[in-house]
C-alpha cells in the first residue's frame, strides 16, 4: 500500500521558536473511516488473555483437501 507523505510547512516567523527537526515533519492523511469496515473490526478484546487480539490469516496451510493447482 502506497502512503502519500507530505511535508508540514512551518510559518516563517514561527521557525525560530522550534527545534530544527520541526522543519522536517512529514504527515499523511489517515484513511477515512469506512462505513462497511473499520479498523476495530479486525481486533477484539479477549477476556482470557486480558488484551486485544487481532484476526489474522493462519500461519500455515491447515489442510490440503483443496488442490489449488486445479483452480488457476
Amino acid at each position: 500500500m502506497y502512503i502519500d507523505l507530505k511535508e508540514l510547512a512551518l510559518r516563517e516567523a514561527a521557525k525560530m521558536h522550534y527545534p530544527l527537526f520541526y522543519n522536517f515533519i512529514i504527515y499523511n492523511e489517515l484513511l477515512e473511516k469506512d462505513e462497511n469496515y473499520s479498523l476495530t473490526d479486525f481486533k477484539k478484546f479477549n477476556e482470557r488473555l486480558d488484551c486485544d487480539i487481532e484476526y489474522q490469516q493462519p500461519s500455515k496451510l491447515i489442510s490440503k483437501i483443496i488442490n489449488f493447482n486445479e483452480i488457476d
Partner: peptide, 16 residues
C-alpha cells in the same frame, strides 16, 4: 521525535 495521530492525520519526524 514527533509521533502524533489525530483523527485525520498522522505526523512523524525522523533523523534528518
Amino acid at each position: 521525535g514527533v509521533y502524533l495521530f489525530t483523527n485525520l492525520h498522522g505526523y512523524y519526524s525522523y533523523t534528518e
